[in-house]
Design a protein around this nucleic acid. Structure first.
Lengths: 342, 342
DNA sequence: TTGTATGCGTTATCAA
DNA sequence: TTGATAACGCATACAA
């Protein structure tokens, strides 16, 4: 169990009577080195058990080989799928993926951007904390031309590239679907802050009602403290206690949707006949719960893949070039038993 | 948008007419520097917008400040919770967390250990791919005394520390619970390979039957190709098609358990009266599905926290010291509607 | 096509 | 208590 020192390019060089620079170039397939020398060097490197020191290379080049991911949590199905998509693409390109969780705290998010910045990530992919409004803490990445992509929970201001769905359109589609099923007292579970993507979904909901000439009733819009199963149950109970209860509920997250189902079932309310329900995300749970939950498809893995690809693409471009583009992904309603009345 | 160069300890030093070593020491609160100098240096560092270059420090010290996590996937609830636990502890201690997914492929796992090894992780936490039998690819960490902790899906051979539950005992407890509810034809969904923790759960199941003097019927042990909802439904259909079907099913993962519920409900079989069901993990879904799924508690976040703490603890110890310890966590059956007959 | 020399930013050793 | 210097391993500008 001897703690052998690592083999370096110098060791390889001296063994072959070459210079370290030749070895360095050969190992990276530099065209200026003869094929013969390259293969000889590579063979020897293998034999000697050489492992490149990415740390030294990073220091030298002033860039690490890692992509930072800053998300509220890794525990939500949507986000873990997103991360999975990022990791697969990054891995293929030889990048590490560094995870950081803001736990939906603005302060943590600020601290973590600092940490990621300090560890010289090559790029950063971020989904904002629920209540983040300011984005000054990302300015350092932009100033340094470090590729930055916001995904899903994006900021208001247009400071960097983003990968997102059209939450407004999605909210509108979901509501229109409920209307098409004959519902006309459609409630909305108002989760998230006024600055979040949830608010966009709400706008879509409001507009769909307007387009259908349905009245907007404040009673049917229930504010949630948190995006949790329990809060959804509470909110639903409140709605169903109304003198004039809703005939449909739009829950802008599946975990809320299953809460609605739970509450309705406990009260013996028939789904979807008396209460139609639609969620959001198409989490695995949506097709497992009984009745199966209608939802809006949210392409998590794909959004991760696109985000990572964007970072890689930016890294290839000359530093001088500015980059900023927006991927707006399509989403569709997935109709299941919880809302199929016709 | 000027690409300003980073401030280094030299810049701070020359501004204050000190040496770089003094600055370096001061920034790390070396006791050999006067309080006055320290505070002066720190203040100036702040003003100048200094950010320590962890890459350089890592190169110098031949160790990065990151912990590698190698798991089959981040998409399973158990694993994403585990990762969350690790990340929180690591973050607090100033470590980055690098994620790698083996996708349950032995070959990928081998390649990823190489990559993590190459990027000089300070420690590594691993949950093995489903079919990994050999562990030679971890030997390099052991040889180099790089802290290595296996968690949950651990290897057979006793090569490194591990954090795990007693899967045998858990399987036994789950089965005993079903027996206590009056079931005597208890089926088992045999997921995973013969080398996995699932096999331990199966042994617990078999032994519980034996202890209760119940016969072991091969027909009631159905082999699954994969740990998926769909495979569980298929397997359950097969079981319920038997001339003499089971009166209980032990599904060694909640995602399988909900598949069992689905299949039974479609066939109009009463749960738990005609078929009692227990899952494993206590994933969120277990308390959402209808009827709620009994399960075995699997302390995911805690296991992550313990794993990370172990790594940190090892990193404090002198390199010469060997370390190897086993955390065997307790698990209990959580009884819910899917198995409560009495 | 290959070699020489230097620097990336930090920390540790030795000296003052 | 502080300073000078070397070293970590690699990649590049410049020479040959």
């Amino acid at each position: 169990m001897i703690n052998k020192k690592d083999v370096t390019i110098y060791d390889i060089a001296s063994k072959l009577n070459l210079s370290s620079s030749t070895v360095s170039r050969a190992l990276r397939n530099s065209p200026s080195i003869s094929k013969k020398t390259i293969s000889k060097i590579k063979k020897t490197a293998d034999e000697m058990g050489y492992r490149p020191n990415t740390l030294a290379a990073s220091l030298r080049g002033n860039k690490s080989n890692s992509i930072g991911i800053l998300v509220p949590t890794v525990k939500q199905p949507f986000l873990s799928s997103l991360i999975s998509g990022i990791e697969v693409i990054a891995q293929k390109a030889g990048y590490n993926v560094i995870i950081a969780q803001s736990h939906d705290s603005y302060e943590d998010e600020v601290a973590l951007t600092k940490a990621l910045y300090g560890s010289r990530v090559s790029g950063i992919i971020c989904s904002l904390a629920m209540h983040t409004k300011k984005t000054a803490h990302f300015q350092k990445f932009i100033d340094k031309k470090i590729p930055l992509v916001f995904v899903d929970r994006i900021p208001k201001d247009n400071i960097a590239s983003r990968v997102m769905i059209d939450n407004y359109a999605a909210g509108r589609k979901a509501t229109m679907h409920l209307i098409s099923q004959g519902c006309n007292r459609i409630a909305y579970l108002a989760a998230g802050s006024d600055y979040s993507i949830f608010n966009e979904r709400k706008k879509g909901y409001l507009n769909a009602l307007k387009e259908a000439n349905l009245p907007i009733e404040e009673d049917l819009i229930v504010k949630l403290d948190d995006v949790t199963y329990e809060d959804a149950i509470k909110a639903t109970n409140k709605l169903l206690d109304l003198k004039n209860p809703p005939d449909a509920i739009f829950a802008p997250a599946d975990i809320l949707g299953v809460g609605v189902i739970k509450s309705a079932k406990i009260r013996g309310i028939k789904i979807p006949e008396e209460l139609a329900i639609i969620g959001f995300n198409d989490d695995p749970i949506a097709s497992i719960v009984d009745p199966e939950l209608s939802t809006v498809y949210h392409p998590s893995v794909k959004m991760g893949e696109i985000s990572a690809s964007k970072i890689l693409e930016y890294l290839k471009k000359p530093k001088s070039e500015d980059f900023m583009d927006i991927s707006l992904l399509n989403t569709d309603v997935i109709v299941r038993a919880s809302s199929k009345r016709k």
